[in-house]
């Protein structure tokens, strides 16, 4: 344990993992919402071409990867915005052109060994340099600040793009900014998670978050928690296990998702058995339905034929026999 925390490369890998675990779910939730979950994967493919160019020209591969991924991100959004029917074919050309060029160029690079390629694709705890840590920190701060400022707009556009367009929100600029954030996240993740696996860290924590939450904001919080836990945890255990850190992180995230799915499934079963449904209820309770409203924790019960009814999904639950409050409080609820 002590050894893990004091080793230089592990310290750097853990910081990089912390940053990735934080920002990947933050950007990923909007990709999942827009049903573009796999676009991060494609940007990883293109980033490999950038890495290859960096290795051949002897520059830091992080910056060349950033340039390649950002250019691809903007091109992808512009292609999608033109609404051409063959846009997905064009994306295929960009993505596979990127990874193919990357593999070919890397083989000609001085450091172009197969082991090197593997570490870029699937992550390694050995490769994060001190200069990388500072770049990742700066990029992660930019991502976090942008999401913090713009998230209500990202949410609006991802939730209903046509509506956002109709009311005059700047849809295309927002989509391009989100694509650039995705590309930047790919680059932050290229050392510890790897270019082929980063997309998983944008998606899987959000899949788990959606099982645990009932709203967008709580869903995002859970996703960040799962992302952080699996990224840092994955780097941690990949040292004693001697496994590629990216693969370990993603396996961990998938395990968290499976455990969450089973846990929430069992909890739902138990709750279903416990709660009783008001039968044959086609009346809709509301502030003006005429039934007495009684605040009950986070919701409102309606007194209906001596029973307290609470809305639950498509039906009403029985919340016990009625206990009317003073009329003053009821007035307040109805107002």
């Amino acid at each position: 344990m002590h050894e893990i925390l004091t080793t230089d490369f592990m310290q750097r890998a853990l910081i990089a993992a912390l940053l990735v675990g934080l920002v990947a779910p933050m950007v990923g939730i909007f990709l999942v919402q827009r049903r573009l979950s796999l676009i991060g994967d494609g940007m990883g493919h293109v980033a490999l071409a950038g890495v290859a160019v960096g290795l051949v020209t002897g520059r830091g591969p992080v910056l060349t990867a950033l340039v390649a991924a950002v250019v691809a991100a903007v091109a992808i959004e512009l292609l999608r915005a033109r609404g051409r029917t063959n846009a997905d074919v064009a994306l295929g050309v960009i993505f596979y052109g990127g990874i193919a060029a990357g593999v070919v160029i890397i083989s000609k690079a001085p450091e172009g060994t197969p082991a090197n390629l593997m570490s870029y694709l699937f992550g390694s705890i050995l490769t994060t340099r001190t200069s990388d840590v500072w770049i990742f920190l700066a990029l992660a701060l930019v991502i976090m600040a942008t999401v913090w400022v713009l998230w209500p707009r990202f949410f609006a556009v991802a939730n209903d793009e046509e509506y956002a367009r109709a009311v005059g929100l700047p849809v295309l600029p927002l989509n391009i900014i989100l694509a650039v954030l995705t590309a930047t996240t790919v680059v932050v993740a290229m050392r510890v998670v790897g270019l082929l696996l980063i997309s998983a860290l944008m998606i899987v924590p959000n899949a788990a978050g959606q099982l645990l939450a009932r709203s967008f904001t709580t869903g995002l919080r859970w996703a960040i928690a799962v992302g952080l836990a699996s990224a840092v945890g994955g780097v941690f255990i990949s040292y004693p296990l001697d496994t590629p850190s990216g693969g370990t992180i993603v396996v961990l995230a998938v395990l968290v998702y499976i455990v969450t799915a089973i846990g929430t499934g069992v909890a739902r079963r138990i709750r279903q058995r416990r709660h009783s449904i008001a039968e044959g209820h086609d009346h809709e309770h509301g502030p003006e339905c005429g039934h007495e409203a009684i605040p009950h924790g986070d919701h409102v019960d309606y007194l209906h034929g001596g029973h307290r009814h609470a809305a639950h999904q498509g039906h009403y639950d029985e919340h016990g026999a009625g206990s009317p409050r003073t009329s003053g409080q009821d007035e307040e609820v109805r107002a």
Partner: peptide
């Protein structure tokens, strides 16, 4: 949508 949201958030 594929992401949950409350009436208030929408």
């Amino acid at each position: 949508a594929s992401i949950l949201a409350t009436a208030e958030e929408i």
